[in-house]
Design a binder for these strands. Structure first.
Length: 267
DNA sequence: AGGTTGACCTGGACGC
DNA sequence: TGCGTCCAGGTCAACC
């Protein structure tokens, strides 16, 4: 569900409720969403203040006043939000933490592809590539030059570029007018430059719109995004391309649904 | 080693 | 109404 723009929106909307406040009690924890398994998260959080709340790729990173860190990954269906403690509890709430002042942090995830990952104080290497919003074209060119996979598949590889998912890969490739099955290493310098610009523009606009809400996604205060209304190709199979009116085509690439305009993005 | 596939989960949409 | 099938915004481990 959540890619870079959605996670960015979650972090931005959670900050006012969390930053510089103390976490009081862990009220509920489903143990199988925690890594490492068996870690005493309740003891680690009790009485700790949240000093920083940041996004790294698709991860929401908490830094406590002890300098310890943990991150939450939302997987496909995860939600992280603050609610009033007496708001009705939805199904699949896996972590509930009371916040100084009476509100409650809730991690809800029906499919449980997401999770809570304790990092401690170590400056652990996360195995993630660079952030796309600050990526320079030569860096993107180097990442793509090293692989013969389809460019769309390469964009989804978080060790090459971290934060893009299925929606924004398709949207960026359409804006750059590049066919998703083109071999990553075959792109010309000009195409890489176009792609770099398209990624940044697409992500910035999506962030400004609060992300894309196809089905589950809501931000940290429960609001839906609106960028799905501006999608050019994603989930628009058979509908007209906004540039040339040709029906949008859908293929399966690397097991993922892939949408593109056969006219604007020729092979 | 690089690249591809299936598995992990639940729920909603659709067809019969 | 009910049941089966397919699909979903992500990431791994297991395979060629």
């Amino acid at each position: 569900m959540p890619e870079l723009p959605e996670v960015q929106s979650v972090v931005a909307t959670l900050r006012p409720a969390l930053l510089h406040r103390r976490l009081e009690r862990v009220l509920h924890l489903r143990p199988d969403v925690l890594d490492p398994p068996g870690f005493d998260l309740a003891a680690a959080l009790a009485g700790r203040r949240v000093d920083r709340l940041e996004r790294r790729a698709k991860r929401i990173v908490f830094q406590l006043d002890t300098a310890e860190r943990f991150f939450i990954h939302l997987g496909m269906t995860g939600r992280l939000l603050v609610a009033d403690a007496d708001d009705p509890l939805p199904p699949h709430a896996h972590l509930l933490v009371s916040i100084e002042g009476g509100r409650q942090l809730r991690f809800i995830d029906p499919r449980r592809f997401g999770g809570i990952f304790w990092m401690g104080r170590a400056a652990r290497h996360l195995g993630l590539g660079p952030e796309p919003l600050s990526l320079r074209p030569d860096r993107l060119a180097a990442a793509l030059a090293g692989t013969a996979r389809a460019v769309k598949t390469a964009l989804l590889d978080q060790s090459l570029i971290a934060g893009i998912g299925n929606i924004y890969a398709d949207e960026s490739l359409h804006r750059a007018m590049i066919h998703p099955t083109r071999r990553a290493c075959d792109l010309t310098r000009d195409e890489v430059r176009r792609l770099n610009r398209a990624i940044k523009l697409t992500l910035r606009r999506a962030i400004a719109a609060g992300g894309s809400s196809i089905r589950d996604y809501v931000n940290g205060v429960g609001e839906r995004g609106s960028f799905q209304q501006s999608h050019r190709v994603y989930d628009r199979t058979g509908q007209p391309c906004p540039c040339c009116r040709t029906p949008i085509d859908r293929i399966v690439l690397g097991g993922r649904s892939t949408h593109f305009c056969p006219r604007c993005q020729p092979r």
